[in-house]
């Protein structure tokens, strides 16, 4: 309110002084960007190029020796079945988790976009697990999924089903990690969708109500089009986040069984910090980088196409 008043009160004086206030500030304006740019340069741009350089070396982390080997690391990567497996796993994980994040996040936001205590409590529950750190999450779920004695085993056994061992199943290990990940951080997409839903002017809904539009029709023709930008935003955020899968896999399955759940990041970590092959690890990093670029370019293209309608 105060803002609106301020605007009104001063609106007539704007034109008079506008030109003078702006003069001579062009260079000074760049100072706003400077602090971030310095950090950005030191912590992101330089490492990025340094990483590309390291990927052309054979570096042993402990003995500090480095030899230039050209593209050898990359050639080796693509004949490394563990790496190929990790690439496929990562894509698979992004592919199964992102749609769930969007669909479930949106569904929850729609259902919980209501005033009152019930809505608030439910929102709190679904968002609550996001504040847990990955080690708590994996600990909890390892316990839940523990064969024979875990919570899930207790449940399946009490209804006479055999005890499942999801984390040691080649088929289920990665999907299980996806479920755990959704459980962990569904809160963020839900909140982003809620914020978007609440930005939709109420009058539109009231008009629709007057027209006796059905729930589905309202959803399809009013709600979804109004938040399509948020859908794209959530999709991009989730793709970025899920490409970076690491802790859950490393702590819950160590990448197994049969390399069925090792993501690229774990491969990078193991190559660099377990096997001390920094060059090899850096090369794998560049591949991850390239993959994310492609995926994001695709998404940006897709969402810009949608918005053209």
């Amino acid at each position: 309110m105060t803002v609106a008043m301020k605007v009104e009160a001063s609106a007539d004086r704007i034109q008079a002084r506008k030109r003078g206030a702006r003069a001579g500030q062009r260079w000074g304006n760049a100072l706003f960007i400077l602090p971030f740019l310095v950090v950005y340069l030191l912590m992101l741009v330089i490492p990025l190029f340094k990483g590309i350089w390291i990927s052309l070396l054979e570096v042993d982390m402990l003995s500090n020796s480095a030899d230039f080997v050209g593209l050898d690391n990359y050639v080796e990567l693509f004949s490394d079945e563990i790496f190929i497996g990790a690439v496929l796993n990562t894509f698979y994980f992004v592919l199964i988790s992102t749609p769930v994040f969007i669909a479930l996040g949106l569904a929850l936001a729609l259902a919980l976009n209501r005033p009152g205590r019930t809505g608030a409590t439910l929102r709190a529950i679904f968002f609550g697990s996001s504040v847990l750190s990955v080690t708590i999450v994996t600990l909890v779920w390892k316990l839940v999924l523990m064969p024979h004695h875990g919570m899930l085993a207790n449940i399946t056994e009490s209804v006479g089903l055999p005890s499942l061992s999801l984390l040691t199943s080649e088929t289920w290990a990665l999907p299980t990690i996806a479920v755990v990940t959704v459980w962990w951080i569904i809160g963020l997409p839900m909140m982003l969708f809620l914020a978007a839903l609440q930005q939709i002017p109420r009058e539109i809904y009231e008009a629709a109500a007057l027209d006796n539009a059905s729930r589905w029709r309202t959803l399809w023709s009013i709600t979804l089009p109004s938040i399509r930008r948020t859908v794209a935003l959530v999709a991009i955020i989730e793709v970025i986040l899920q490409f970076q899968l690491f802790g859950q896999a490393q702590l819950m399955t160590q990448g197994g069984p049969n390399n069925s759940s090792r993501p690229i990041v774990q491969f990078i970590y193991e190559a660099g910090f377990r096997n001390w092959e920094l060059g090899y690890a850096a090369a794998a990093s560049q591949v991850l980088f390239a993959m994310m670029l492609v995926a994001m370019a695709f998404q940006v293209w897709l969402s810009s196409r949608k918005q053209a309608y």
């Binding site: 971030f36 740019l37 990483g51 980088f289």
Partner: peptide, 24 residues
Amino acid sequence: VLFFIVLAGLAVPEQAIIVPLHAM
């Protein structure tokens, strides 16, 4: 141009730079 360069950073995952960052 600067804005574009910063936006391009959106696509750089921390893992892509973890090795050089660690070395630095």
